[in-house]
Computed example of a mutant assay.
Amino acid sequence: MKTETLLNDGTISLRALEPSDLDAMIRWENDTRLWSAGSQGAPLSRHAIAEYIANYDADLFAARQLRLIVVENATGNAAGAVDLYDFDPLSLRAGIGIIIDENARGHGFGTRALTLLWQYASLHLGMNQLWAMTAIDNTAACHAFTSAGFTTAGRLRSWIRRGRQWVDALMFQRLNIEA
């Protein structure tokens, strides 16, 4: 029996947020080591994250953001999350972000999640391109984006602040060549 679908490659699945994701999201959102990878700069309360989950709108065109949970099919556990953000409905492009739980890293889930989200965005939503920024020294993220078909589109000097230091960032891009 074939288990692959648009949001399932047999090893992982992407699904909507559930109330049961609260503890994992608190862990990810409040991990200060991850804050330089996004725009988070202060801890979020359990209440704030629970409200986010309860009021989440998965309509990318209305909310301009789409967050999906990465699930390891073999265990049913949340292995991470992927986001489309800064959605531009005119140019049909968005930023893409990813977090893989510390306990789930090293199994290729990041590459698989990026590939599934790209397929969903291009085939189902008709998007023309996705882009991402990552610190140049985040070798796991750089490898995952490259392995998922993204190409390096540029380098931004001193783009990411880490305390009193600045790190260069790489911009990755994946285009729908049939557009």
Results as ranks from 00 to 15, higher is better:
residue 2 K to M: 04
residue 106 G to I: 08
residue 168 D to K: 12
residue 55 N to I: 00
residue 21 D to G: 04
residue 89 P to F: 00
residue 90 L to C: 11
residue 155 R to Y: 00
residue 81 A to P: 04
residue 126 G to D: 01
residue 14 L to I: 12
residue 136 I to Y: 00
residue 5 T to P: 02
residue 107 H to V: 02
residue 8 N to R: 11
residue 100 I to A: 10
residue 51 E to C: 07
residue 16 A to Q: 14
residue 150 F to Y: 07
residue 151 T to Y: 02
residue 95 G to P: 07
residue 147 S to Q: 12
residue 1 M to H: 08
residue 65 Q to K: 13
residue 177 I to P: 05
residue 64 R to D: 08
residue 66 L to Q: 05
residue 122 S to N: 11
residue 41 G to F: 00
residue 32 T to H: 12
residue 93 R to M: 08
residue 108 G to T: 08
residue 108 G to K: 07
residue 8 N to Y: 02
residue 118 W to L: 01
residue 85 Y to I: 10
residue 37 A to M: 12
residue 13 S to Q: 14
residue 28 W to R: 06
residue 21 D to M: 03
residue 163 G to N: 09
residue 111 T to K: 10
residue 49 I to S: 03
residue 69 I to R: 03
residue 56 Y to I: 13
residue 16 A to V: 10
residue 119 Q to R: 15
residue 52 Y to Q: 15
residue 93 R to G: 06
residue 89 P to C: 04
residue 21 D to I: 03
residue 143 H to Q: 13
residue 146 T to D: 03
residue 145 F to D: 06
residue 29 E to D: 12
residue 149 G to C: 08
residue 9 D to I: 09
residue 155 R to P: 12
residue 63 A to C: 10
residue 143 H to S: 14
residue 171 M to K: 12
residue 34 L to Q: 10
residue 86 D to L: 13
residue 107 H to S: 13
residue 57 D to M: 10
residue 124 H to S: 13
residue 61 F to Y: 08
residue 162 R to N: 08
residue 67 R to D: 11
residue 151 T to Q: 11
residue 7 L to I: 05
residue 113 A to I: 04
residue 141 A to I: 07
residue 5 T to I: 08
residue 81 A to K: 13
residue 144 A to R: 04
residue 143 H to L: 09
residue 3 T to G: 05
residue 91 S to H: 15
residue 151 T to P: 00
residue 153 A to M: 02
residue 174 R to T: 06
residue 176 N to R: 15
residue 158 S to M: 06
residue 80 G to I: 04
residue 132 A to D: 03
residue 14 L to P: 13
residue 108 G to V: 06
residue 93 R to H: 09
residue 58 A to E: 08
residue 38 G to P: 01
residue 140 A to P: 10
residue 163 G to K: 09
residue 141 A to Q: 09
residue 9 D to C: 09
residue 54 A to K: 13
residue 160 I to N: 05
residue 162 R to T: 10
residue 78 A to N: 13
residue 19 P to G: 11
residue 131 W to Q: 11
residue 143 H to R: 15
residue 149 G to I: 04
residue 130 L to A: 08
residue 99 I to V: 15
residue 49 I to A: 03
residue 23 D to N: 15
residue 178 E to M: 05
residue 25 M to W: 02
residue 101 D to F: 02
residue 164 R to Q: 13
residue 95 G to C: 04
